[in-house]
Design a protein around this nucleic acid. Structure first.
Length: 371
DNA sequence: ATGTAC
């Protein structure tokens, strides 16, 4: 194991990344600031670590009985869900699929939306919507099976189509954070305030998972197929742990709930991870993707020099993104190399890839907005 | 991240 501890001798912090991985200094600085948080015990960062608005993204943070809602952030329950389609790549008419997927939001059934949003009816308009930022619905093909037996066990066939869905709880998450917002002091796990936050948090987590399911089912119907859930893993959430501890995950997927998607950028392959025992210092966590290499503002500025964001890319997938600013901010070169992130995961013994997926069509947004 | 802050 050749894992670089960027945080030096302070054993409360671990960064599971090799020296070959680009880790921005600002994100490590944000990580170290967590030591001042009430109840702080330790933090585990992954190779996708990057700076966020209020704190580092790509890490797990454990406290002694204190919930810090601001560390989970606004998009409570945001995560990645992978669904298998009952369609082979060779059966797919790519042009038809590309055209049909433009209508993803319009195709969501009103009754299904209301049903899935029953847990938070006031937020029903957001149910079955992708949202902005790095969210997407992506049609993929399984193009390599590193572990054939594991793939067989889950019915993952080479050449079959899949849907990878990345979205969250839409406007519900921000509302929950604001309502329980407590600055940096946090909430005691056992207090009425802590219990109340957890209840609303859990609703947002469920809402987000329902959103991913509804989007996958709708996208599947647009390509004349049916979606079967392989795995759904949140990466922005908090959970009580044995011994009165609280584990926060901010851009980190759980390593103790089975298979976990590891998406690359929208111009790269994705993987499906099978978690391994791993060291306890990793706080039962995995990276949630490639992680940003360049911030959004920088990417947006670069695009103002007249370059149209590319609709295609080296892997040949087509991207539905009518919002040019979003396309610039989310361009593949804003992200780290997923192969490098995966190598660090495997080297650290956190997980291994059992399958690799190539993007075919990516849905971001069909509405033009930014310039 | 967010029916996009001032």
């Amino acid at each position: 194991m050749n894992i670089h501890h960027w945080t030096g001798a302070d054993r409360r912090f671990r960064v599971f990344a090799s020296p070959a991985s680009w880790i921005e200094g600002a994100s490590v600085a944000q990580l170290r600031l967590l030591a001042g948080r009430r109840g702080f015990l330790s933090a585990a960062a992954m190779a996708d670590l990057h700076p966020g608005h209020k704190g580092p993204v790509g890490c797990a943070i454990e406290t002694e009985g204190v919930i810090h809602p601001d560390l989970v952030g606004t998009d409570i329950g945001c995560g990645m869900a992978l669904f298998a389609l009952d369609i082979e790549q060779r059966q797919l008419h790519i042009d038809k699929a590309f055209k049909a997927l433009h209508g993803l939001h319009e195709a969501v059934d009103a009754g299904d939306r209301a049903h899935q949003a029953a847990i938070a009816p006031d937020y029903a308009p957001g149910m079955g919507t992708v949202g902005g930022g790095n969210h997407f619905v992506e049609l993929q093909v399984l193009d390599d099976r590193a572990d054939e037996a594991a793939c067989d066990a889950h019915g993952l066939r080479r050449g079959a189509l899949f849907l990878l869905v990345h979205t969250g709880s839409r406007s519900l998450g921000p509302e929950v954070l604001e309502r329980h917002g407590v600055g940096e002091r946090g909430l005691d796990l056992q207090s009425p305030e802590g219990i109340a936050y957890l209840a609303d948090h859990d609703r947002a987590v469920a809402f987000a998972a329902a959103n991913r399911k509804l989007l996958a089912e709708t996208a599947a119907s647009l390509v004349r197929g049916n979606a079967r859930l392989i795995t759904d893993q949140p990466h922005n959430f908090v959970e009580p742990r044995p011994g009165g501890r609280v584990l926060h995950r901010k851009g980190a997927a759980p390593a103790d709930r089975g298979l976990s998607p590891l998406p690359g950028s929208r111009g790269a392959q994705s993987h499906l991870l099978l978690p391994e025992a791993g060291p306890g210092e990793a706080l039962a966590s995995l990276p949630h993707g490639a992680g940003r290499k360049r911030d959004r503002a920088g990417m947006s500025d670069r695009a103002k020099d007249g370059d149209r964001p590319p609709r295609a890319n080296p892997l040949g997938n087509r991207i539905i993104c009518a919002d040019r600013r979003m396309a610039a901010e989310e361009a593949p070169d804003a992200y780290k190399n997923i192969a490098r992130v995966l190598a660090d995961v495997e080297e650290a013994g956190l997980a291994r890839s059992i399958a690799r997926f190539r993007p075919i069509v990516t849905f971001k947004t069909a509405e033009a907005r930014g310039r």
